[in-house]
Nucleic acid binder design. Structure first.
Length: 284
DNA sequence: AAAGCGCCCAACCGCATGTCG
DNA sequence: TCGACATGCGGTTGGGCGCTT
């Protein structure tokens, strides 16, 4: 099975970092035609990139709504626990963090969380230095923990870009204002869109406060308990073969305002899952 | 000041999966 | 049903950058 790389026959196909000019060309094209049909993108834009590279650049970097910068403890918690449940199914995990790309999550896991988990999987006596009340202490789940690195310089919070509407501006770099302006033009819009934007900003603010009460699943905002359950089961249940009841507890813990609330319930089901709630909570 | 080292992350590679004729 | 093609996904790489010595 498999097939040769799409760029095998590409003579003169450019590789390496994207330039601001290329970003602008790609964003402009997608503005007009929408994402998809990636094969035609290099052909129609003149970009000397393979279709795969264009798709990746869009999905991992240029796509509107991508949140960059540090991961919140709540996001960390979701990643760690879902990784324990699902394994390295980054796309599935990313569906619970719609503002993060699977690549970002994968990188964050490989560079931060994997070490953290490994460290805590050392023999039990390693934990003896941890205060016995640490697990239950409210301060233990702290945004100011050492693992929570500070915002990178120059990376502004999503909502702080002036004159933008509902998308985050591309965060770093060289691409700078030009692409940002394109996004503004694209997303500056109808009153209805402005209303949606306000909703999104409120949601983002909530997430920043670790109080996310809604999730995005498959590009749709899913609200309400029933939909939450469906969304979670869609990803988790087929993999784990677990009952709805089991995952409703996880769901409470992962998605509700108080990350520790359902922990007692999880204690009772840990044997059926590969994740250990106690150890997991130590991470936080 | 500069060399060495390690970390981070954007991007690439190759395989898996989906779709269509 | 089969093969070709398009897209998705996860593992890996390597350049840039910051920190340490």
């Amino acid at each position: 099975m498999g097939r040769p790389p799409c760029c095998d026959n590409g003579v003169g196909v450019k590789k390496g970092p994207w330039t601001p000019e290329e970003d602008i060309v790609l964003v402009s094209y997608i503005q007009q035609h929408g994402p998809g049909n990636w094969r035609s993108v290099p052909e129609n834009t003149g970009l000397m990139r393979c279709s795969k590279s264009c798709r990746l650049r869009w999905t991992n970097y240029l796509r509107p709504g991508i949140k960059r910068g540090n991961f919140t403890p709540h996001e960390e918690g979701i990643i760690i626990h879902l990784q324990a449940l699902l394994g390295n199914k980054w796309a599935a995990i990313a569906s619970y963090l719609p503002q993060r790309t699977d690549n970002d999550i994968k990188n964050y896991w490989n560079t931060h969380l994997k070490k953290k988990v490994k460290r805590l999987q050392q023999p039990a006596d390693t934990f003896q230095t941890t205060p016995s009340n640490a697990v239950t202490s409210p301060n233990y789940y702290s945004p100011t923990s050492s693992s929570h690195h500070s915002l990178q310089a120059g990376v502004q919070p999503m909502n702080s870009y002036p004159n933008t509407t509902c998308t985050s501006a591309p965060s770093n770099n060289a691409t700078g204002g030009a692409v940002s302006n394109l996004f503004q033009a694209w997303t500056r819009p109808s009153p209805a869109a402005a209303a949606n934007c306000k909703i999104n900003m409120m949601q983002e603010f909530q997430e920043e406060q670790d109080a996310a009460t809604s999730i995005l699943c498959k590009d749709q905002i899913v609200t309400g308990d029933a939909s939450k359950s469906s969304a979670l089961e869609m990803v988790v249940a087929p993999v784990m073969g677990a009952s709805t009841a089991t995952f409703s507890l996880l769901e409470d813990w992962l998605l509700d305002d108080m990350p520790g609330q359902a922990m007692d319930g999880l204690m009772g089901i840990s044997a059926g899952c590969c994740a250990d709630p106690i150890m997991f909570k130590r991470l936080l």
